[in-house]
Every structure is written in structure tokens, then in C-alpha cells.
């Protein structure tokens, strides 16, 4: 009997062009890709190729052009592309229930009386944004005179392992949050963002409270945690596990029950956003100081 010579392009007796085998393999789910690499050299080489990833991005509806050239061209970044295909690590908002579109899910309401409103009554409509196009006009509303909420992101669950994060250095976690008030007395907003390994907080940003005047306009706070190829960050990344956001709000001056009844706080929060952005240059290490005890006071 004649022995079948396997060259990886001959499937069941039919020799296919390499681009077709590549197309077939590009449709295999992430979980089965490793098996394809183990079939033979030809398949292994196809799966390792740059054009293979481009096809997979199209197949999964992800935008290949949005990925920096550095990541696309160097084979050492393949695990990053793989994690992006699987979890969207380079394009998603890690804060999934950003504006209450999923009710209060994911948020821990520590204090106060919170609801979700389908439109920002008393305030301007939320600005048009490509990133948030599917999230409509919903927002969280603080009904009581003070309140606090928190959102925790499990990085491992979101596809960010220590190995993947180390490969992506330098990068930053970028935070932003919109807020607005229609209350006629000034309101104070304290927001915070931190990263930790569950127990120890590595970096914490907790700026002084922002005074919100009753304009009904949406305003934005932003902050980023930067990571570079330095000893401290490399050490932190090994155990980094969680990102958390905190929001606290209260009326600047204490009010009587009558005032509260007449002029409720109705502070609104929408579009909590945490994204991962790759950086072109190493960040200045001092730009993201380690946590001091003072920061932890609150």
C-alpha cells in the first residue's frame, strides 16, 4: 500500500492551497488552537503566522487595524493577540456595568440609596461617544444625602495574567468617570481608583473631593496607573489581581429633612470606564508613587 505523505496541506487526499488551510484553521475556537499546532509542522507554522491572526480577527469581528504594529509583527506578542481575541483586553471597558445598563450588578453599594435611571433627568443628555454607543442614556442616581459605591475588577477573570501584563509593558490602566448634579446646593464628590493583589493595595489614587455645582452639565474625572519595565512594577505585576473604583458623595453642608425633601441630591454617575492602553515610552517611575499610609486613611 502506498504511504500517504503528509505535508499538512493534503487533507483527506485533497491538496488545498495554503490560504485555504489557513482559512479553515482561522475558524477553530481559541480552546482548540493548541491542538492544531501539534498536528504537524505545516499547521504549526500556519497558526504562528501574522496573516493567520489577521484572519482570526476578522472571523471574530475584532478590529485588526486598531492593534499597534509592534504587537502585530513580533511573534513574542502572540499571547497578547490571543488574549485579545479571547477577552478583548486591548479594546474593552473593564467596568462592565458602566452606567447601570445592567441595573446595579457588579457594584457594591456601601452607603445610601442608589437607583438606576434610564435617562439623566434634570441634567443634559449624555454626550455621544463611539465607545459607549450601545450604552444609551442610563445612569446611576444617588437619591439619599450621602452615598458610596465601589466596583472591583478581577484582572485574571478578564484575561490579564501576570505573563500577559509583563509582555505588554509599558502600559497604563486608564480610568474615567462622568458625573453631574441637578441639585441646587453644592455637592462633594470623592472618587478613588486603586490596584491591589486582593490584600495589599499597590497604588491608590484618591484626590481631594471635587465640589459639584448645580449646572446639570456632565463632567469627567480621569486618571491612569502606568506600568513600566522597572523592578517595582515588575514585582507588582506578578501578584496584581484587582482594580477597584470607589465613588463617595455627600452634600457640602448638612441639610434639614425638609430641604432634603424639597431638593434631593440626585447626583448622577455614568460611563465608568477602565481601559488598558499600550504606551510608546517608559513611564517615569515617580509618576505613580507607591501607596503611603496616608493615602489609606479613608
Amino acid at each position: 500500500m502506498e504511504e500517504i505523505v503528509s505535508n499538512g496541506l493534503n487533507l483527506g487526499g485533497f491538496t488545498l492551497p495554503e490560504n485555504v488551510v489557513e482559512l479553515i484553521l482561522s475558524k477553530v475556537p481559541n480552546e482548540d488552537i493548541l491542538n492544531c499546532k501539534l498536528v504537524c509542522h505545516t499547521w504549526k507554522d500556519i497558526v504562528a503566522g501574522n496573516s493567520f491572526f489577521k484572519l482570526r480577527f476578522e472571523e471574530k469581528g475584532r478590529n485588526w487595524n486598531s492593534i499597534p504594529d509592534k504587537i502585530k509583527s513580533d511573534p513574542k506578542y502572540r499571547p497578547v493577540l490571543h488574549a485579545h481575541l479571547r477577552h478583548g483586553i486591548l479594546s474593552k471597558n473593564y467596568a462592565r456595568n458602566s452606567s447601570g445598563q445592567d441595573e446595579l450588578r457588579g457594584w457594591q453599594m456601601w452607603l445610601g440609596d442608589w437607583i438606576v435611571s434610564q435617562e439623566p433627568f434634570g441634567c443634559e443628555p449624555l454626550p455621544i461617544s463611539n465607545f459607549f454607543k450601545r450604552e444609551g442614556q442610563s445612569c446611576f442616581v444617588l437619591k439619599s444625602d450621602k452615598g458610596a459605591k465601589c466596583y472591583c475588577i478581577d484582572l485574571r477573570e478578564q484575561g490579564l495574567t501576570p505573563e500577559i501584563m509583563e509582555l505588554m509593558l509599558p502600559f497604563q490602566f486608564q480610568f474615567s468617570q462622568l458625573y453631574a448634579s441637578s441639585c441646587s446646593t453644592p455637592t462633594m464628590f470623592k472618587w478613588g481608583a486603586g490596584i491591589s493583589d486582593w490584600q495589599t493595595v499597590f497604588q491608590y489614587h484618591y484626590p481631594t473631593p471635587i465640589k459639584i455645582l448645580p449646572s446639570g452639565k456632565w463632567q469627567k474625572v480621569e486618571y491612569s496607573f502606568k506600568f513600566g519595565n522597572n523592578a517595582r512594577h515588575l514585582k507588582e505585576l506578578k501578584t496584581l489581581r484587582q482594580i477597584f473604583l470607589t465613588h463617595k458623595a455627600y452634600r457640602e453642608n448638612p441639610s434639614t429633612p425638609d430641604e432634603i425633601q424639597r431638593d434631593p441630591l440626585n447626583l448622577k454617575f455614568a460611563r465608568a470606564c477602565v481601559t488598558l492602553e499600550l504606551l510608546d515610552n517608559e513611564p517615569d517611575e515617580s509618576s505613580s508613587p507607591a501607596v503611603s499610609m496616608e493615602d489609606k486613611r479613608d
Binding site: I4, L11, V28, P29, N35, C36
Partner: peptide, 16 residues
């Protein structure tokens, strides 16, 4: 291919 072991894939396509 999907859901098969490496050996099953080789058998299905007569690959060595």
C-alpha cells in the same frame, strides 16, 4: 477539528 484530540484530527484528515 474542533473538540478533537490531536490524534483524532490526524486520523480524520489522514495526516502524519
Amino acid at each position: 477539528i474542533t473538540g478533537r484530540t490531536v490524534d483524532e484530527i490526524r486520523t480524520a484528515f489522514k495526516l502524519k
